[in-house]
């Protein structure tokens, strides 16, 4: 029987196209997941600061360094002079501390690599979340156990809304918590 064009199209081309499309969509989805929600991003920092040592072992409170987290929108990466509060004296012969002191003395700010970033079209407000009792670990993971900080939770809008719509199950340690705002202008103003 002679093969018609339609035959050819239906039996060979169509399944082939569908297969290619499906594979590329699935591949792109999973391969780009890291880029889309940045889970697992663990860059090297200019100075090997270890949260495990400072926040975990030495139990320094998060808010000692991250000053703005309960006061205003930004959590604030600590400036060098906060580090030098202790490190003018403690461990000042270690190579990383020498790097730190050099930065401090030359007046150059330390260019930390940013890990957690909400896109610029969304205005995230730290103090509202912290003042409602939400623990740092609920979004940033167990930073106290991290030598090098990495992002462990996805920072997509879906992730935010999952918690906003269902805080009782997502944050079981809070006794009384209402749903977070769902309207656009809460974040996208």
């Amino acid at each position: 029987m002679k093969r018609t064009v339609l035959d050819y199209a239906l039996k060979i081309r169509l399944p082939l196209t569908l297969f290619v499309v499906a594979v590329s969509v699935i591949l792109t989805f999973y391969l780009s997941r890291a880029e889309r929600d940045s889970v697992g991003y663990k860059p090297d920092q200019p100075i090997k600061f270890s949260h495990k040592l400072h926040a975990g072992q030495m139990a320094i409170d998060c808010q000692y360094c991250h000053l703005g987290v309960a006061k205003d929108r930004h959590a604030v990466i600590p400036s060098a002079n906060i580090c030098m509060n202790c490190h003018t004296v403690s461990r000042k012969d270690r190579p990383e501390i020498i790097k730190l002191t050099q930065f401090y003395n030359t007046g150059k700010p330390i260019p930390w690599k940013r890990i957690h970033k909400v896109p610029e079209y969304a205005y995230f407000n730290h103090s509202v979340h912290v003042n409602k009792g939400i623990d740092c670990a609920s979004c940033h993971g167990d930073v106290k156990q991290m030598d090098i900080v990495s992002q462990v939770k996805p920072f997509t809008m879906t992730a935010c809304l999952d918690c906003h719509r269902n805080p009782q199950t997502q944050l079981p340690y809070l006794k009384t918590v209402k749903n977070g705002p769902e309207n656009c202008w809460a974040c996208h103003r």
Binding site: A34, E35, S38, Y41, P43, V76, I77, P78, S79, A80, N81, I82, F103, Y104, G107, K108, P109, I110, P111, W112, K113, R114, I115, K117
Partner: peptide
């Protein structure tokens, strides 16, 4: 590095 989010730069002496 498609995951690169740039840098976050604090004050040196706030």
């Amino acid at each position: 590095n498609y995951r690169d989010k740039g840098e976050i730069i604090p004050y040196n002496k706030k």
